[in-house]
Amino acid sequence: MNLDVWKAQLRKGAAELAVLALLESRESYGLAILRVLIDQRGLAISEGTIYPLLNRLRREGKIDSRWVEDEGASHPRKYYFLTDEGRWLLAAMKTVWGDLSSNLNALIAGENHER
């Protein structure tokens, strides 16, 4: 299997989880979300993909938004926050991710061990 294809598929799901997780503790706006997530090189989040992603999550009812006039900002910023549905979904996604990654990590570690 082509490694790039596999990586792209992995990233898509992870990007959504990352955004939802980031919004769990507090609401945030596009550029601030981007600044945190752009350093996570494993995720496919860039300046070109962040707003389409946020837009899709909002359309799917997982997040909602409001315009806020921050002090010192030249323009109002669009802040996103989790909806009840998004919060519920995030909890479920965390469980799935936790199980999957711990099982996989154990498996990978075990294989290395035998060699």
């Binding site: 790039d4 990586k7 792209a8 990233r11 898509k12 990007a15 959504e16 496919a44 860039s46 070109g48 993909t49 389409p52 992603l53 899709r56």
Partner: peptide, 8 residues
């Protein structure tokens, strides 16, 4: 088909 665009 409704997946976020991936520009790698």
């Amino acid at each position: 088909l409704r997946k976020p665009r991936d520009d790698g």
